[in-house]
Write a protein that binds this DNA or RNA. Structure first.
Length: 152
DNA sequence: GCCAACGTTGGC
DNA sequence: GCCAACGTTGGC
C-alpha cells in the first residue's frame, strides 16, 4: 500500500465536503505528473493526506483513501466544463482520475508551519519551495507522523 | 495583491 | 529542439 498527499482548495472542495458526500471523483487535474500518479500508481486502499491549499492557514485537514482506480476523466469531454480539453476524447482519453473516499477529519488541523518545523518531515514535497504539484507521494513514516499530529 | 517557481505553448 | 513569452499555482 502507498501513501499520498492531495491538495484541494477548501473553497472549492474541503474535507467537510468529502465527509458529506463520502466519495468524490478527483476530476479536473490537468497536470501530467499528477495524472500519471493517478493513472499508473494509485491503487484501491492507498491512503491520502487531504491537504487544504490556497487558504489560511494551509495544512492537512484529514485522511481519505483511494476507492476507485484510474478511469478517464469525463470533465475533459464536456464542452461546458471548465476542464474541457478538446484533445481528449472517450476513444482516446488524455486525462485520468481516481475516486477518493472519506476516512476521517483530524481532531487537530495540521498546519504547513507545523509540518515545516518537524525535522522528520523535511523531505516532504509539499514544503519544498516552489512545489506546485497537487498530488505527491509520501512515505509511511511521514503519513504516520502527520496522523499522530492530527490526533493531538 | 504580490511574486517566485514552475509548466506549457508556439515561433523559429 | 531551443527558449522566450505567457499562464497558473499557492504561500505570503
Amino acid at each position: 500500500m502507498r501513501y499520498w498527499l492531495m491538495k484541494s482548495e477548501p473553497d472549492e472542495f474541503s474535507i467537510d465536503d468529502l465527509k458529506r458526500v463520502k466519495r468524490e471523483g478527483w476530476s479536473g487535474v490537468r497536470n501530467y505528473q499528477a495524472r500519471n500518479f493517478m493513472r499508473d500508481e494509485m491503487k484501491c486502499g492507498d491512503m491520502i493526506l487531504f491537504y487544504h491549499s490556497s487558504c489560511r492557514p494551509p495544512g492537512v485537514a484529514g485522511i481519505a483513501k483511494v476507492s476507485k482506480e484510474s478511469h478517464p476523466d469525463p470533465s475533459a469531454f464536456n464542452q461546458k466544463s471548465a476542464y474541457y480539453d478538446e484533445k481528449s476524447s472517450p476513444e482516446k482519453p488524455r486525462w485520468f482520475m481516481v475516486e477518493v473516499e472519506f476516512v476521517e477529519k483530524f481532531k487537530k488541523y495540521v498546519t504547513l508551519d507545523e509540518i515545516k518545523e518537524r525535522k522528520t518531515l523535511s523531505q516532504m514535497k509539499v514544503i519544498q519551495k516552489g512545489s506546485r504539484l497537487s498530488i505527491t507521494p509520501v512515505t509511511k513514516k511521514e503519513f504516520d507522523t502527520i496522523c499522530k499530529m492530527g490526533q493531538a
